[in-house]
């Protein structure tokens, strides 16, 4: 299978060479054709810059980018068959929805009748039939988002780039759109590159994902791999806020003297007597679908997630901790 997008030691530094801002720094990555690829990372970690390198709005200061095998160093954005759903949607305010969606066809010289028909098709694909005559200002945030999606898809791009497309939507709408995007991607078979800072979104939608930290990729893999076997402390903490245990605590937990991670939902609370690990409850947080209990074990705080319906201990109570030893994951990425 061809790689839709391939980065070889790609860097994008801003500012003076003496003190550069390394927005993207030596990134290697391969995005398989037809996959749903997520770029996950905190704000400022270089996700947007990566996307802009693919679309051509940024030029790499080092390395090579290939799109379907072709080196795109000298190809301007308008000649890359890659389209973007912008973070702020960037709909043209002076055009109605139909003309916005048909824009990509208009600049290619497609006649008005054909492009309006195609625009209507695209609008019905994103469930906005009948909205063609409205101006962007007359739409809700969710509807604008769909128009931006339809507009980007009208050109039948080989790769669709989405920069935090759901960031501005409320939770309910967001979840609905996550499902829709996923379905749409599967149906169209277009490679989606999806940027988000929401780990839940990345885990639930992606076929594979890259976790960004300070311009570098901290880990790349399937959601299950990244979630259950984080390579570094950063990944363990950022993806699913795992318990990150320093070497001495790992040893107390029965592992080698190395950094490790332990998912809160893998921990159970037991009676304090006769167990190796016991501590004091220092925090309680009700999460709806369960509760999170923080337990202090000789100076280290460990979070345990209890399913709903289980009895919750009181603040200050002494409890024991138990877990399946296989759940303790030693991070080889840490020294």
């Amino acid at each position: 299978m061809t790689a839709a997008v391939e980065f070889q030691r790609v860097s994008r530094h801003f500012g003076p060479a003496s003190a550069p801002v390394k927005a993207v720094d030596g990134v290697d990555l391969t995005i398989a054709e037809g996959s749903f690829f997520a770029m996950l990372g905190p704000s400022g970690s270089g996700k947007t810059t990566c996307l802009r390198l693919i679309s051509g709005f940024e030029k790499p200061t080092g390395g090579t980018i290939r799109i379907f095998g072709q080196d795109v160093s000298d190809i301007p954005p308008n000649r890359r068959n890659v389209n973007t759903v912008f973070q702020d949607y960037a709909l043209f305010p002076h055009m109605n929805v139909r003309d916005n969606v048909g824009y990509g066809l208009m600049v290619k010289g497609v006649d008005r009748r054909t492009r309006e028909a195609r625009a209507e098709e695209m609008l019905s694909l994103v469930k906005l039939d009948g909205y063609g005559d409205r101006k962007p200002a007359q739409l809700s945030g969710g509807q604008r988002q769909r128009v931006a999606l339809a507009r980007a898809l009208v050109n039948e791009p080989k790769v669709l780039l989405l920069d935090e497309p759901l960031g501005a939507l409320d939770l309910k709408l967001r979840e609905a759109m996550q499902d829709e995007l996923k379905t749409l991607q599967a149906r169209l078979g277009i490679t989606f590159v999806f940027v988000t800072h929401d780990q839940g979104e990345a885990l639930s939608m992606a076929d594979s994902l890259a976790v960004f930290n300070e311009g570098r990729i901290a880990q790349i893999g399937t959601p299950a791999e990244v979630y259950s076997r984080p390579r570094t402390r950063f990944v363990a903490d950022f993806v699913g806020s795992s318990n990150v245990l320093p070497p001495e605590v790992t040893r107390a937990f029965g592992g080698p003297a190395k950094w490790s991670s332990l998912r809160p939902e893998m921990l159970r609370l037991t009676a304090p007597d006769g167990v190796a690990l016991s501590g004091t409850v220092t925090g309680l947080r009700y999460l709806g679908a369960g509760s999170r209990v923080t337990v202090a074990l000789n100076g280290t705080e460990v979070a345990a997630q209890l399913p709903a319906g289980q009895p919750v201990p009181e603040q200050g109570a002494t409890v024991g901790l138990a877990f399946d030893p296989a759940a303790l994951h030693v991070m080889e990425g840490e020294g």
Binding site: F57, T84, Y103, R151
Partner: peptide, 10 residues
């Protein structure tokens, strides 16, 4: 971003 969207669309 409006100008980029235009270039992006070809």
């Amino acid at each position: 971003s409006m100008l980029e969207a235009s270039a992006d669309l070809g």
